[in-house]
Write a protein that binds this DNA or RNA. Structure first.
Length: 333
DNA sequence: ATTAGGG
DNA sequence: CCCTAAT
């Protein structure tokens, strides 16, 4: 399972503001079926997950031919999220804009825009064939790549690259999935989904993962960061319905949803979650219990000696409603 | 079947 | 978000 440098030695320390997300095992690297054991740990408090604009950065093979595969699924390597600030300061030059779509589920895991080339490619000395699944022809997914200069930045970060062997995903091409604000959620969900698709047993420190995720600042210490969509599919079907790790729904609450919930509660009062669900969230993925839980969290977040407000800033009016509702409930106790 | 609370 | 005791 564990291979070489991945034994918790922090092979690839992330930079401040960097989030490395491990995917599944590298099917080309021995343990084809066993998920890679990866650790995610909080690396820095540089970023605020909830507030940051997600930028998914992929690093992979050198030539643009591989881009298709990278996205198309043949050899998705790793995904890294950074703050826009970081992106800017680091002066990343290899960028590719694309939108996310999911080949395996309707609200997606892997996205791409560049058509996956069905050819076979030599990767890390091994031969693999790209999946036949070509990407849907999304014309609007402009593949904008700026070349030149990126290598430098890489070296800088690697500090010369001595010590650990250069992992595949460090191989330099750096692609940035520029997520627009609207797609930000998709990116975030994408990343989180990947984590959830990791079977529990595949993680050595699930609790740490969850904890880190909660705080939203992750870094990955692992060498195995390959992902093949088909494997992902297998994994998901294997686990589905078997309490095998991932959660049913990872849609992060949007501002709109929160506002809607608060407004509804403000009118109908707190409680009667089932009724609330049917009357206000009948088409939503949120269950009555979800609504209940969300309210509890909102209340906790915006009430009294609450700790730092992690939530995205809700507008004043909304916050006031939350606080009023919260205090109103106190009186009833 | 729902809800309240803890995890 | 999940789990479960209590309703």
């Amino acid at each position: 399972m564990e291979t070489g440098a991945s034994s918790g030695t922090g092979s690839f320390p992330a930079e401040d503001g960097e989030i490395w997300v491990p995917v599944l095992s590298d099917p080309l690297d021995g343990g084809s079926n066993s998920p890679t054991q990866a650790e995610i740990e909080v690396y820095s408090a540089y970023l605020d997950y909830d507030a940051m604009d997600f930028q998914a950065v992929l690093e992979g093979p050198q030539d643009e031919h591989d881009i298709g595969k990278l996205f198309g699924g043949a050899m998705f390597t790793s995904c890294c999220a950074r703050s826009p600030t970081y992106i800017k300061e680091a002066n990343l030059t290899h960028e590719i804009e694309c939108e996310l779509y999911s080949p395996t589920s309707d609200h997606g895991m892997i996205q791409t825009l560049a058509p996956a080339s069905p050819e076979t490619k030599e990767i890390r000395g091994r031969r693999i064939s790209a999946p036949a699944t070509a990407l849907p022809e999304k014309e609007e997914a402009p593949v904008t790549m700026a070349l030149g200069g990126g290598g430098e930045e890489d070296k800088k970060r690697k500090g010369g690259g001595k010590g650990h062997p250069l992992p595949c995903h460090r191989r330099s091409m750096r692609l940035a999935l520029a997520a627009t604000p609207l797609e930000m959620g998709a990116c975030a969900t994408f990343i989180v989904d990947l984590l959830d698709y990791m079977p529990k047993s595949g993680w050595r420190h699930r609790s740490r993962v969850r904890s880190a995720r909660k705080r939203g600042i992750w870094s990955l210490n692992t060498e195995q960061t390959f992902l093949l969509p088909n494997h992902l599919g297998d994994m998901s079907s294997t686990c589905k319905g078997k309490k095998c790790g991932h959660r049913k729904n990872n849609d992060h609450w949007t501002y709109e949803e929160m506002k809607k919930l608060v407004d509804a509660l403000y009118i109908s009062g707190v409680g009667n979650w089932t009724k609330l669900k049917h009357e206000n969230f009948s088409t939503s993925v949120r269950t009555a219990m979800n609504l209940k839980d969300k309210w509890r969290n909102l209340k906790k977040a915006y009430t009294g000696n609450a700790k730092k407000k992690i939530l995205p800033t809700l507008d004043k009016a909304c916050v006031e409603k939350i606080q009023k509702l919260a205090s109103k409930m106190k009186l009833h106790l």
